[in-house]
Amino acid sequence: MSGVTKWWARLTAALTGAALTLVIPVHAWAASKGLDTVAVEAAKSRRRRGGFGFFPIFGGICCLLVVAAIVLAFVLISRNRKRR
């Protein structure tokens, strides 16, 4: 493993650890304060507006494009590994 790859792995692990160190306590605090019920009620009370029916289709297309990009990146990376 090259030096750059080792440092990249270490940096990624450190950032993931830092993010989890912050996210888990904040989530526990929000759940203990009852903020989860506020979010659920806000989502339930949101009104449906007419004329915006294409947004779910747009969201689905966007999701498919993201999944396709991830699969394409995986295929390209695995092809480059086989050539060596």
Rank of each mutant, 00 (worst) to 15 (best):
S78P: 00
K82W: 04
I77T: 14
L11G: 02
F58K: 15
V4T: 05
G3W: 06
F74H: 04
S78M: 10
R79G: 07
V38F: 08
R48S: 14
T12V: 08
G53H: 00
W8H: 08
W7Q: 05
A31R: 15
I61N: 10
L15A: 02
E41L: 10
S78I: 02
G50H: 06
L11F: 04
A42C: 06
R83L: 11
L64Y: 13
P56K: 02
V26Q: 15
R83V: 04
C63D: 12
T16E: 02
A39L: 09
F58S: 11
L76D: 11
L20F: 00
V23H: 09
G53Y: 00
C62H: 11
A19W: 06
R46P: 00
G59W: 11
L20S: 01
L64F: 15
R83D: 07
V75H: 00
I57C: 04
T37Y: 12
N80I: 09
F52E: 06
V38E: 08
L11D: 01
R83C: 03
V38R: 09
R81D: 06
F54N: 09
V38N: 10
P25W: 07
A14F: 03
F58P: 03
I57P: 01
L20A: 06
I61F: 10
M1V: 05
T37S: 15
R48N: 13
R83N: 07
P56F: 02
V75T: 03
R84G: 08
L65R: 09
A19N: 05
R47I: 03
A14W: 02
I57D: 11
A42W: 08
A30Y: 15
I57T: 15
W29H: 11
W7D: 04
L35G: 12
P56W: 05
F55E: 01
I70G: 03
F58D: 08
V66S: 05
E41T: 06
K82E: 07
A43E: 07
R83G: 03
A31Q: 15
T12A: 08
I70N: 03
V26C: 14
G53A: 05
F52N: 03
P56Y: 02
W29P: 01
A9V: 05
F74N: 02
C62Y: 12
L15F: 02
M1D: 03
V71M: 10
A68L: 14
T16M: 02
H27D: 07
R79H: 12
C63Q: 14
A42G: 05
P56T: 00
N80Q: 14
K44V: 04
A28C: 09
G17V: 00
L35Q: 12
W29Y: 14
F54C: 03
T12I: 05
F74W: 06
V67T: 13
T21L: 14
R83T: 09
I24P: 01
I24C: 11
W8V: 04
V67C: 08
D36A: 15
F58W: 13
F54R: 04
T5M: 05
K82V: 07
W29A: 12
A39Y: 08
I57K: 12
L76R: 15
S45R: 04
A69N: 08
S32W: 13
A13N: 00
A73R: 02
